[in-house]
Design a protein around this nucleic acid. Sequence first.
RNA 1: UGGGGAGUAGCCAAGUGGUAAGGCAGCAGGUUUUGAUCCUGCGUACCGAGGGUUCGAAUCCUUCCUCCCCAACCA
Length: 569
Amino acid sequence: MPAEPPIPEPKSLHFIEEIVEADLASGKHGGRVLTRFPPEPNGYLHIGHAKSICLNFGLAAKYGGATNLRFDDTNPVKEDVEYVDSIREDVRWLGFGWKGEHYASDYFQFLYDYAEYLVQQGKAYVCDLSEAEIREYRGNFHVPGKASPYRDRAPEENLDLFRRMKAGEFPDGSKVLRAKIDMASGNMNLRDPLMYRIRRAHHHRTGDAWLIYPMYDYAHGVSDAIETITHSICTLEFEDHRPLYDWFLEQDVEGRFFQRPLPRQIEFARLNLTYTVMSKRRLLLLVQEGHVKAWDDPRMPTISGLRRRGYTPESVRAFAERVGVAKRDTVIDVGLLEFAIREDLERKAPRAMAVLRPLRLVIENMAEGEVHWLTLPNHPDDPAFGTRQVPFAREVLIERDDFREEAPKKWFRLAPGAEVRLKGACLVRCTEVVRDAAGEVVELRCTWDPASLGGDAPDGRKVKGTLHWVSAAHAVPAEVRLYDRLFTAEDPMDVPEGGDWRDTLNPDSLEVLAGARVEPSLAEVAPGTRVQFERLGYFCADPDGRPGAPVFNRTVGLKDSWAKLEAKG
RNA sequence: UGGGGAGUAGCCAAGUGGUAAGGCAGCAGGUUUUGAUCCUGCGUACCGAGGGUUCGAAUCCUUCCUCCCCAACCA
């Protein structure tokens, strides 16, 4: 009897996939799936955007569709080409290619024409109320709004006024175009929302061609419809904008501007991560106030920051996959992100040895000038990584943390009289501790067992500790930057009365180790190269490095069960 | 006159009337020339609470509670 084939676990669909599959089944869009990723170019993308990018591009790819990249550039005072460029780079880095690259500003004429149509239909009007008056007339959650005195202007007058707004006859802020919907709606978005404001601002793409700019609620749905987007995915806070999204598209009853089926807005919960902030506004403040060096500071949750930190696109995508897609407000443990990069780098990163805080170890029974060139594997489990030559000599550097004068319980590393293995080299026993005048340990004297060259003793004796090391004479000086979480609070926004979210910034989020030493094979490492420093973690060569003077960022440490054990006492 | 959402283990998340998947974290053990990796095992989750319908409810009905979003000429 042949063995039953393993039953493939059908991966359950998330709610958006269910919607798409239902649409596919009903033939709503003729089998088409077209999503869009629509950032406003007013800042750098962060890990939260990565979730959205993976969702939009991933969904389209899964169902044989495509995704447009659309810049939602309707507010010229906040936007800049610098951001457009970084967004394109980040999406590409994540591994996605877009079908169309569009700009809401490409649709300014269409939006204007459709707005004129709505004016003519009596569905939009020019309002002369001031900003403060509009707010006052809008009422609040408990009080219905009241009609603007300009609400019943005749369509012809509105059209004339709207055209003159466009022509620049009125000063900024003096008039707006409003949709005429329902001033008594429980949904504030429907209380005659603004469609256009007058703004004499230079736009990064249209220059000074326009003096009036459309608002998000008006422009977004129309842009989706122009591109014949099938599923318009956005975050939860837009849930009560959906009726407005639909309203703007539904007013075109004759199909002069749009054809059915119209795009459908679907909302999902945005990503939140512990120990960081995730709004463009606050990330911008971190940069502006100098809490971090730049948008791509490796401590930042930006895509460019993660990239510089050493994260792989695959790990970010795997992370996005693991967090899921749902409608609950959630906060993901940053540990899950760390897991994702460790998991990826475990099999991808070649190994090497580096010593962060060196302590000299002299092998007394080895001759001066004696050098053993060891052939070490670049990966413990994957021969495809090949091998490299590593010099081993009388004076080596080991990690300061790997020596204790008084060994605690379960201490496997070096201590006076103890024997450990130098990884890939040999067994050494500590015979003497050398101190300076201040009593500081400056050197360890050891003896080695020449028979153990390679790492094992022929007599079969075991040591529990294996240390990484570099040859003092051959090692290359390097700068190593260690990063810790940017904030000390799991939720930096959860501040006590009178506090500020910046109060919990971690003063020790960056530690620069100027005196580190790496093995010679790393001397001319190219920026962006990822490597595991054995027993320390995964590191990535920073662009600040130069040939012979590399700089490494610690992407993430290895799991450290000794530290955990010791912490428990 | 309020409207819109959401509640399943520490964190996520399946489940769509038939008796609670999976991942991360954590714990225990095994392997190991990285205290890494890898492998094995470990959770009575009273499914926000109370009522109800049903032979049977996380799933249906109902009342209540809690949390999130909305009153920018931002997106």
